[in-house]
Nucleic acid binder design. Structure first.
Lengths: 224, 224
DNA sequence: ACTTGATTAAAACACTTGTTTGAAACGGAC
DNA sequence: GTCCGTTTCAAACAAGTGTTTTAATCAAGT
């Protein structure tokens, strides 16, 4: 840990790591202060209490860097290429190649089981990222698409990225230890998700003709 | 709660609900026994300790019902239709229309942050479901596809379903309260995920020709 | 009615938690 | 040096945790 800093920052950094690893209620202020090399009373001196420290840590997690909305730069490139670049950056985050490890982990925790810190997190990090993605895929979809369906398509894309972060352990059990290490490759995953999503977006060009070939017969229950 | 039952079952049922709601370490044996109408010592009398009770609750969650591998029945139908039926059932689970609420919630918790109970859960519930999906989409993909890429495609499909369960609160903040209630509709979501996935699978028919139009230029960093 | 085994109940135990307290140590200003 | 505000520390507090213990209760079996 970096010494010679504001003890408030040291405490915040240690808190971020522990909170990301164990969550708000599972982390203890003793462990946090121990890691920070400070006394137990520090958390109450610099912040009000444990929860305030947590909220501040989440805020720090999504305020540092701020590398989200810099995609409008390559607007000249074809949208397929922009999408691939976006997905590569996103998957880089999912695979922990970008930030200090605990930043994203803490944000993921907050997204899965939100506290009061979540609204600000979505407003300043998730939201802009989502809007960027929508702008990227917008020209790849038919012009008459509704904002509603645009949201659905964007959801389908980010969902694929999130899977490899949230369900790593299940995936490991599912495909085996060896097959899983070869699976978690940035280039491979980026390419697959890009191809899969691009094909889906192209297929959506005909909203009422080709797609949904089986929509009226599907209400039957599947009981043997 | 159903009375006149083996107190072991009553305890297990109450434990399932509380564990699903709060997780293993956040739930207290006092609250569980309180809900079950039993004494605190019951958890140590019928089960060994809290963790053993938890493992048993997870086992109960994925053993009751067992409605997973009944999809081979309608093998006569076209695979597109089978996929839609599968996705409808899966989304029904995600939207809490099928089982008693806590069963799936507990499994989701176990998948997100696995304990020792996860291996058995994957082996007897997640695994078969995943294999079923792979068999369904198998005829929709080119014959020469590798098991590896088949896994990737199946992952991309289940990922879309899981999103609407895991990130409900984020989605709510993202698209607004009103837009979100209209979003969480079983038919609408099933139709979208089916269309999106079918289009993607069709697009994968040309594994080296049309797809991945932008793969060599994408290594540039996106720094302004 | 008495005994025996299984079940339930209340209390206590040992431990950890977040938070608070009050005094000690520090660092400049005068 | 003396003073004073800021920062650190060790100790204690009250509340809550899982677990154990010990006695009470119950339901047959004889």
């Amino acid at each position: 840990m970096e010494d010679r800093l504001d003890p408030k920052d040291i405490l915040l950094e240690a808190a971020g790591e522990i909170f990301a690893e164990k969550g708000l209620e599972q982390a203890t202020v003793r462990e946090i202060c121990g890691k920070a090399g400070l006394n137990i009373a520090a958390v109450n001196y610099y912040f009000r209490d444990k929860k305030a420290l947590y909220v501040e840590a989440v805020k720090l997690a999504h305020c540092t860097g701020g590398q989200t909305p810099q995609f409008e730069v390559l607007e000249g490139a074809p949208p397929e290429q922009v999408l691939e670049a976006f997905l590569r950056q996103m998957m880089g985050m999912m695979l922990d190649d970008v930030r200090p490890t605990w930043h994203l982990e803490l944000m993921m925790r907050e997204m899965a089981r939100p506290t009061e810190a979540c609204v600000e997190l979505v407003r300043s990090f998730i939201g802009p990222m989502f809007e960027t993605l929508k702008q990227i895929i917008r020209p790849l979809l038919p012009a008459e698409i509704s904002p509603f369906n645009l949201n659905l398509h964007a959801f389908s894309i980010v969902a694929q990225c999130l899977l490899y972060r949230y369900h790593r352990p299940v995936g490991r059990i599912l495909v085996g230890e060896d097959g899983y290490t070869t699976l978690m490759d940035l280039d491979r995953l980026t390419r697959h998700i890009t191809d899969f999503s691009l094909a889906a977006l192209r297929g959506a060009s005909t909203p009422s003709k080709g797609a949904t070939a089986t929509q009226s017969v599907s209400h039957q229950e599947t009981k043997p």
